[in-house]
């Protein structure tokens, strides 16, 4: 039997009818057509589907849409206005923190919570903090650099050089 749920997605309240087994990520991608949230695995391993559920970063492939009833969801489409980059997005661009872009939205959503909880993380804390997100392209160096950049920017301190350390 289908369920009717009410969710607030990127600030807009939506009433949706879903099968109980509908995965939250499918609700986001297929019903709401917010295709910035990606699917990369079956086992909650890759983090490509990471979104914020009531402000907490979660893997939307391992949550049922019905479980989001009454909650608020933020996806990559909801973190900045098109045409502008928020400090995390800017950090990724300035520091070449993305290659193919597939893991990027999940990464950014995870980092959004990471920096909220820990505004001035160490490199080690960043690496552990994104350990639920796999990236196959970048080797992570520049993602770490992007987070440090975003952290500095959000705290209002000068950002480090974005030039490559390619001596």
């Amino acid at each position: 039997m289908n369920k009717v749920i009410t969710v607030t997605v990127n600030g807009v309240q939506q009433v949706l009818e879903v099968e109980p087994r509908t995965l939250l990520v499918h609700m986001i991608r297929e019903i709401l057509n917010l295709t910035g949230t990606h699917i990369g695995c079956d086992t909650s391993s890759c983090g490509a589907c990471t979104i914020l559920l009531d402000g907490k970063s979660v893997k939307s492939c391992t949550i049922l849409a019905v479980q989001a009833n009454g909650k608020s969801i933020t996806t990559i489409e909801g973190i900045s206005t098109e045409g502008e980059l928020n400090p995390i997005q800017e950090g990724f661009k300035e520091n070449h923190g993305l290659h193919c872009g597939f893991c990027t939205p999940g990464m950014i959503m995870r980092i959004t919570e990471l920096l909220k909880d820990n505004p001035d993380p160490t490199e080690e804390e960043i690496r552990w903090g994104i350990s639920g997100n796999l990236c196959r392209c970048t080797g992570y160096n520049n993602i770490v650099k992007a987070v440090l950049y975003a952290s500095a920017k959000m705290r209002g301190v000068p950002t480090a050089s974005t030039e490559p350390e390619f001596v």
Binding site: R29, T35, G36, H38, L98, G101
Partner: peptide
Amino acid sequence: HSMKRKEDVRFLHGKGHYIDD
């Protein structure tokens, strides 16, 4: 030049067009 990538913006907004989209 270490030009910042032109393709990044769409990916950063979740506006890439991958096959499953």
